[in-house]
Simulated scan of single mutants.
Amino acid sequence: MSAARSLLSRVRRLEAARTAPRSAFEHAFGSLEAFTSEVQAGIDAGTFDRIDMPMVLNAIRRWHTDGEFGAWQRNRVMERHG
């Protein structure tokens, strides 16, 4: 019985290690959508550049969607692009 509990505990740890960590945007703003709406408000107000910032937002969305924000922590960036 203790072997089964030990195995279940190990499986839980392995599954927890495989889940993607939250991105910096989720930590700071709660979600990527909240960050995007705040930046869009800055673009509309003239705080951010109307030409460059949408491109930056698109890059951040892709970085977030592809899960690249956690790859550097796991040293797996080259596995995805190599």
Rank of each mutant, 00 (worst) to 15 (best):
M1P: 12
S2W: 09
S2K: 15
A3F: 09
A3G: 06
A3Q: 11
A3E: 14
A3Y: 07
A3P: 03
A4Y: 08
A4T: 12
R5C: 12
S6R: 15
L7A: 15
L8Y: 05
L8A: 11
L8F: 08
S9T: 14
S9C: 12
S9K: 13
R12T: 07
R12D: 08
R12S: 07
R12I: 07
L14H: 12
E15I: 08
E15L: 15
E15K: 11
E15R: 14
E15Q: 14
A16Y: 05
A16W: 05
A17Y: 13
R18V: 10
R18I: 07
T19V: 15
A20G: 08
A20N: 09
P21G: 08
P21T: 05
R22S: 13
S23P: 03
A24P: 10
A24D: 14
F25A: 15
E26S: 08
E26P: 03
E26L: 03
E26H: 06
H27P: 04
H27C: 12
H27N: 13
H27M: 11
A28G: 09
A28C: 11
A28R: 13
A28E: 15
F29S: 03
F29R: 01
F29P: 01
F29T: 01
G30H: 02
S31A: 08
S31D: 06
E33C: 04
E33N: 09
E33R: 10
A34R: 05
A34K: 06
F35S: 00
F35L: 02
F35D: 00
F35P: 00
T36M: 06
T36I: 09
E38H: 09
V39L: 02
V39S: 02
V39I: 07
V39M: 03
Q40H: 05
A41V: 05
A41D: 11
G42M: 02
G42R: 01
G42F: 00
I43P: 01
I43S: 02
A45G: 05
A45H: 02
F48P: 00
D49Y: 00
D49W: 00
D49C: 02
D49K: 01
R50Q: 13
I51R: 09
I51A: 11
D52R: 13
D52Q: 14
D52G: 14
D52Y: 11
D52H: 12
D52V: 12
D52P: 03
M53P: 03
M53L: 05
P54K: 00
P54V: 00
P54Y: 00
M55F: 06
M55W: 04
M55S: 08
V56E: 06
L57N: 01
N58P: 03
N58M: 11
A59E: 10
A59S: 10
I60D: 02
R61T: 04
R61Y: 05
R62N: 12
W63A: 06
W63V: 05
W63Q: 06
H64S: 06
H64V: 03
T65L: 08
T65G: 06
T65P: 02
T65K: 12
D66M: 10
D66C: 09
G67C: 02
G67N: 02
G67Y: 01
E68Q: 10
F69W: 15
G70F: 00
A71L: 13
A71M: 08
W72T: 12
Q73E: 14
N75L: 11
R76M: 06
V77L: 15
V77E: 15
V77H: 10
M78I: 12
M78A: 15
E79I: 11
R80C: 05
R80M: 10
R80G: 08
G82N: 06
